[in-house]
Amino acid sequence: MLLVNPSISGEPFWQKVESIAQAASKQLNVKLDVIYGDGSRYIQLEELQKYLEYRATPDFVVLMLYPGNAEQHLDLLEKYGIQYLTLEQTINGPEQVEIGKPGQRYKNWLGEIYFDNFRAGADLAQALTDSLREKRPKVKPQALAINGHYGSESDARNQGAQSFFGSQGVALQQSIYASWSKTQAMEKTQRLLKRYPNTNIIWSASDLMAMGALSAVKQRGEKDPAFVAIGGFDWLNDTLRLIEKGELQASVGGHFIMGGLAILSLYDKFHGHSYWQTNQSITYPLVVINQHNVHRYIWLAEKIDWTGVDFSGFSLLNNKQSNYLVSPTFLAKDNAPGVISD
């Protein structure tokens, strides 16, 4: 199999996706190659084309589609007759209409593995609002939102936040884009805090940007700064430690298990299971980590040997279930026997 990591080697979030995929492959005796897209849709397409031209054709490919050239990626894979899965739902609007759903225009597109970004965005907004109300019950919630880029993933998260804030009467003063960058998020938050000095909630579409916002709040220079509830997505190691210390309030995540889930489902298909003949997707909920439950997940902030996770236990070949009942809650300390940190 081939996993196309859309980022660079060692990038915190996608490294976890890759590491879990590697562990699942080792456990299931699957040979897995990995190539990198370097955070660029153009480079990813070039690297995929070079791999397919100069190496033996893999049985399956797992990749994330970048908005703007999804069609070129799918055309290339169809040309080589390779079956493939896509991670996350990153394509929307006219481009999504053009490529259709798995198995329609592109017959070798088996399906998608994704999660409900709208609900996750709302869950993060609720966690931050609840945290503010616990710490400062008499203040009026006033929020800022920091998005990644213009695309379905970030926009769906933001729409979920807007829906929750609107339902609770929370003032969402402004939404901005910071290109998933910690530095951009810090610099833009600094300017926004001058415009909206009473801000007490900063919702972010990623943990890196949340940490950038935290830096901006700390740099305001107040002797006794008012509490600001800040949170993001991804369960990054540093984020979990900051939640434990009370500097950040929440992180939504667990979606990095999608790498292992993709390998597992393709292993099942290779050995004859019909799931991808009758289904177009695998979905699962994300989980909020906050100060109330971080003690169950803080072990994830250490270097992890993912080979301790029993991926075979989720195989439909073994458990005879009709769906993949996988949730990130299985990574909670008391739910993950045998998972080793070192």
Rank of each mutant, 00 (worst) to 15 (best):
E244L: 04
E88C: 00
L331M: 07
P12T: 11
A21S: 14
P58K: 02
G111L: 08
L52K: 12
E46F: 05
L172V: 12
Q321Y: 01
E98I: 03
I263P: 02
Y84L: 04
Y42L: 10
Q96S: 13
V228G: 01
A229P: 02
L286V: 12
N147K: 08
K26A: 12
K101F: 15
N335P: 06
S179R: 10
F165W: 11
Q168A: 10
H273S: 04
G121L: 01
Y177K: 04
V62M: 15
T86S: 06
G308T: 14
Y177C: 01
R157N: 06
L236F: 07
L110A: 07
S322M: 09
R191D: 15
P12D: 10
T189G: 01
I43T: 13
Q162E: 14
E153R: 03
R191L: 14
D310S: 09
D33L: 05
G10D: 05
D224K: 13
G254K: 01
P141H: 09
Y275P: 03
G81Y: 10
E153A: 12
G68L: 04
D116E: 12
I298W: 05
A143F: 02
I35E: 11
N158Q: 12
L132Y: 02
T283S: 15
I243S: 02
Y267F: 14
F233R: 04
M1Y: 11
N69L: 02
G308M: 12
L128F: 03
L45G: 00
R191N: 15
S19M: 12
